[in-house]
Design a protein around this nucleic acid. Sequence first.
DNA 1: GATCCGCAGATTGGATCCAATCTGCTTTGG
DNA 2: CCAAAGCAGATTGGATCCAATCTGCGGATC
Lengths: 227, 227
Amino acid sequence: MAARGSADVASVRDIVDRLQERIGSGEIPIGGWIRQEQVAQQHGVSRTPVREALRQLEALGVVEMVAHRGARVTLPSTRDIAEALEVRGVLEGHAAQLAADRITEAQLEVLAGTDATFRRVVVLARDPDAQEEARELWYRTNSLFHATVVEAAGNRQLTASLDALHHRLPRNLTWAGLAGDPRLLDRNADDHIAITAAIRAGEGERARSLTLQHARRAAEMILVRRA
Amino acid sequence: MAARGSADVASVRDIVDRLQERIGSGEIPIGGWIRQEQVAQQHGVSRTPVREALRQLEALGVVEMVAHRGARVTLPSTRDIAEALEVRGVLEGHAAQLAADRITEAQLEVLAGTDATFRRVVVLARDPDAQEEARELWYRTNSLFHATVVEAAGNRQLTASLDALHHRLPRNLTWAGLAGDPRLLDRNADDHIAITAAIRAGEGERARSLTLQHARRAAEMILVRRA
DNA sequence: GATCCGCAGATTGGATCCAATCTGCTTTGG
DNA sequence: CCAAAGCAGATTGGATCCAATCTGCGGATC
């Protein structure tokens, strides 16, 4: 059985997934170097499959490989982030539009649930001692909301394109912009609720434009924070 | 110097590019297997860098690797193609909308040139002996048109997302739908010209909806052809 | 005291080697 | 004559080995 970090003997796919997790969670910091030998030992394999995994991550835009120096987690520029969020808004907007026609009753239930949770987060975030809990809850809820809309759109290529974009962006970027300002958080909750309402009403065009606006507002907050 | 197929000693990046070319041009057929040893010899390297290149292509969705059997060029399903074309329409539609605000005079010149060439192709395609020439010219012109619009949009993430999508689709797919029907080809030329006009007039919303319609028509033709 | 040079250690890139697995053909049994 | 078993060749997956290169540090030089 597993004596090392995770499972004994791992496939390339496993290594890719594990590294994505560790990068996404911040365990491996943005701009940080990834040592092949270290990853190899953690997974109980030689460097060969690790190198292949790193090449996949390179193709996905998650890391960049520098000759004879190694792989480091891609550090997106402010421009990259702004552009990626714009594209994300476009794709999610389209997903929302499709969802308005195709969403199932069960998926609408899920959205109703996230709406309620977003409201709870607004309240929770007022407590200075619950910031970490609020962040975690908001992040999970936000992920669920967007994943549900995209799933309801029922277009796998759309899902794939959005996944690719997300992997190129640091996680919790939006929360960094929301944190500390109750008004922004409140508006964020309103955005989600309005999108749900438009989808439920079958108003695709409105769902699309609300989603695009929502993404652009998120982008603004993030860029202001970084400026 | 190079005694072998292309350049002597190639980097992983070179191998990726070369394989993409050979897949895109149809030299390696869809569904065909890629032999590591063969590619290695053609590039004057061992199988190690070839495997890394194949892993990148796998991450890009260009090939799929089957354990102990090898890499084969991805065979997209009809559904995959339909969905990818839908997403492409959305992204290019957005690009057209942005282009309407940002396009330069020089880029508009290029579009004027492609418009003229599209008209020439319509005429050329009436000659049964010039089919191959027409196909080639249409393909080059179409690529230039879309590349120019995306470039004018000035969003690198949008470009990257579209490139990723294109690599997942067989080349010359649209021509396969257009070929042999002068009415469709004529309409295709009209589409491009109308989009150019909307961009030139700065009417972003119209450019967007025309582009989306254009993509959907292309999708329809392709799917009818495959059905 | 600052700068340049060069060497030791660390790390990667790629070649080669071997075990595991798959394919297709041949053989064997019904 | 057909189906199942088995064997040989081909091919991949991964481990290991070695050369090339980069980094950081210490000493020589001005």
